[in-house]
Amino acid sequence: MNIFRLAGDMTHLMSVLVLLLKIHTIKSCAGISLKTQELYALVFATRYLDIFTDFISVYNTIMKLIFLGSSFSIVWYMRRHKLVRRSYDKEQDTFRHFFLVLPCLLLALVMNEKFTFKEVMWAFSLYLEAVAILPQLVLLQRTKNIDNLTGQYVFLLGAYRAFYIFNWIYRYFTEPHYVHWITWISGLVQTLLYADFFYYYFNSWKNNVKLHLPA
């Protein structure tokens, strides 16, 4: 465990928990894509299949449980909570899961570290995580509006991406045989998509400021 990895895990954890706590507190999920949240729940469910079979550390197991619990809680709130689900932009959040899930599954069947159920699911979870933000991006482009909730969530996710890349670079130079092409390439794609998301975020933020200026 290095400082970049820890910082990456903590910002990732905070992104999910901040989102969950805010939805719980303000009883609103306006601007948040349920499609993206469902994809993230699927990402964690398929990646952590090893939770009871491979013990890595107490830290690892607890983090996995928190990610699983919080991501499924967010989906539950957005689908089932009677106040929260009213604030959901259903008409705007039309991205089909299928278009992301199917190519990722096919890619995982072809590109994996080992052709076993767990390894294919693990590769699938990495590919899916890389593109799971797309429905959120589409929703953001449509509504052209980004509030504090979405802003903080995106900022924390972006920080998580950046720290993980530093972690891989650090591990590559400090650990022998640390080469993980699948993780790195899908992680890089994911980070590039976040850079795109950040671009829209700052544009929207800038436009909102402009709108408040006197004509």
């Binding site: 990895r5 895990d9 990732h12 990646r47 090893d50 491979d54 890595i56 550390s57 690892n60 983090m63 996995k64 990610f67 570290e113 080992k114 390894e119 693990w122 993980y164 972690n167 993780t183």
Partner: peptide, 10 residues
């Protein structure tokens, strides 16, 4: 061992 693939990252 070489056969088992262990993923220690989250």
């Amino acid at each position: 061992d070489q056969e088992r693939v262990v993923h220690d990252e989250l």
